[in-house]
Design a protein around this nucleic acid. Structure first.
Lengths: 219, 219, 219, 219
DNA sequence: TATGAATGAGTATTCATTCAT
DNA sequence: GATGAATGAATACTCATTCAT
């Protein structure tokens, strides 16, 4: 049996004319929950319409096809997450502090908005899907933000590095973060601060060595 | 249009009686390819049977339902990957060398067996409950292997650490590895060695600092 | 070749929006006919939807699965038949007259609603567990009605009998009736009155009486 | 879930060459059980072959298609039941005694051979089936036997009756018997003798007689 | 003789999407 | 604007039956 998304049973006020923007938000909220719970293919437009309290034809009128709806979800949630991270980074601070703030707000966000994160993370990898482009774009943007933070950290070092060179490191950092969140879900006795510090310690210290010219080589 | 898995159009030798074990392998091979290409829900049993050159009833008779078939794929591919990693680690070597070998063979494997990796990483993740168990088990086992490697690395240090304490680091490392592979697919002008070295540099150096008592703290 | 239920080939007025209750009746009517003609397993939802002039999804939306649809048929037809019998019994009459009216209306009903009877008697019987419950309930209710009639007939007699004691007799009477209807279908040159009288004579008077020339006649 | 027919788990002696007649009996025994348990359509050849301990190709070689197998089951079981009844009737006895003996052995048989009876009774009504002819023939033969017994009972009476005239009475009697057996299954605290007497009293004496205190007793 | 291996053909069921009201 | 009614198209799964060994 599906673990259904909670349906509120209070009679929804049908035929209440609401402005388009409100309707769209209702729909997106419901869609994010349902997609997060069941994944794209398992999610049914019927359930989304039920959870949203809005009939299917309205969903099609406002947000288009199921695919377009999913893309809209991804875009909104990705923007939210990126905004949260960007908002936490104060460019006046020292580079490591900037990274620290970014990571901490990332963990805080994932803790607070489970569905949002589930849609981005769980569904984001599915390939062969028509919307994989959207998903790849989100990943790429996230990497760019992190890569920029990392590049800034080398500004004062001997060997300055360009953001492009930081891309694989950023990718690894994002992946490490995602994976740590998964582990966190199973081991919730940690604070967002604690998680962010773990990641900082793991990445930053090693990164610092690199910046200073100490690197590891196989025998 | 679906980017269909290549169908050989030469008339497959039907009614050739082959032993069950051979057929099962053929089916799993085909299933991994198709699931990797389209994902679980988009993959149709019809296509799998066509690619395998075996009729659907045999698939059901040997491997059970679509879900069971998918799980069988996950299990086989997960075991293969783990075996590859374990086989590469020579416990006689220095800890960093062990980790290096493990990571390198991980990247080599993902490079060589694209479908296998795609099924494990991209598709299995995206699905809901029924498969998450299988996938979680694999993740957990992989983490255990890595955590053990990391713990070994502290044996000669002042502050020895238990494998359990290494779990979040292992999680981060696995996530970083997965994410790097994704990046690699889009930027294939790198060797498996190069990718593994990047990860070593990122993780090992930082880890080394930790072991020696240097850690990062927020202001 | 299947002896298909007559399909009207004039293009059915698709997309005509009708209220749910009307559609449900149409579906049940068609289903009773098709189930009566082919039996539960041989009947296909495709044919039912074709005969009903309604697409399959509507059938599933309104009446549920094939099994539920069959049960719904059984229930509706059983209720109809019982109503017909109950409606014919005038409790003001003499007991034998009441029985006579009940039996006569039973035969009339089976004659008039062939499909209805076929579903109840021929098809529901042949199936396994899931339906036997429904059918058993109907049988039981029918027996109760008959047993009550029989018990009433003893009210003025020396040895009054309770309805429960009449149960096996009622069972036998119902079975005799069902079987007579079968025979009647192969020998249709008899009226419903004639059939009911045969049964009255057999049951009420007793065969021994018949042999000796004593028979029962309606007033 | 199906209430499966009990499968013996002791390893059946495969490839043991047995004479055809033995194999055929094994198959028919299994088929009767499976058909009785699930009905014709729900019964699968796979299950029959499993219960019989004989591979499917042998079943097809010996008994033909599923339909032919079913017909063979009906014919064998019908013959057995008829033989049991015929064997119990001693033509030297008084007519009522003959009927009594026949009925009693009928109830004894149904009690002893549940599967046999279930196949004949439960499946016997299915119409629209290719084998309904066989089933109708069995019913007809049973009626003939009973009708003959009834006709004999009128030999000494003023108004002798022909067996054909007795057909509807025989039909009713058979139906009453079948129905009583069903009731008996739910109320097993009665002996075969008791059931047969109930039927005699009902049919032979007539309900009217019963009410007035005249009942039938075996000698 | 005996069977594991193999399949064609069929069927219940679901779901995204649209239209009449 | 808002929705109940409606469906085409797709797909997982089953089963009687046959054939190579």
């Amino acid at each position: 049996m599906k673990a259904d998304v909670e349906h509120s049973d209070r009679p929804r006020p049908r035929t209440k004319r609401l402005p388009r923007s409100v309707r769209e938000r209702q729909i997106l909220d419901a869609a994010v929950d349902v997609f997060a719970a069941h994944g794209f293919h398992q999610a049914s437009m019927d359930e989304i319409s039920e959870v949203a309290g809005i009939s299917k034809p309205m969903i099609y009128a406002y947000l288009g096809s199921k695919e377009e709806l999913f893309v809209a979800c991804i875009q909104r949630e990705a923007a939210r997450l990126l905004d949260a991270i960007r908002g936490a980074v104060d460019t006046g601070l020292r580079p490591d502090q900037q990274l620290w703030r970014g990571l901490r707000s990332f963990f805080e966000y994932t803790q607070q908005y489970r569905s949002s994160w589930a849609v981005l993370h769980r569904q984001a990898n599915a390939q062969g899907e028509p919307f994989s482009i959207e998903l790849a774009q989100w990943r790429s943007r996230t990497r760019d933000v992190i890569a920029m933070l990392l590049a800034r950290a080398t500004e004062s070092a001997e060997q300055q590095m360009q953001p492009e060179q930081m891309q694989p490191f950023a990718a690894a950092l994002v992946g490490a973060g995602e994976s740590l969140v998964d582990w966190w879900l199973d081991n919730p006795d940690h604070t967002a601060d604690g998680m962010a510090m773990r990641l900082m310690n793991m990445v930053w210290m090693g990164f610092g060595d690199l910046v200073e010219g100490r690197d590891w080589k196989p025998e």
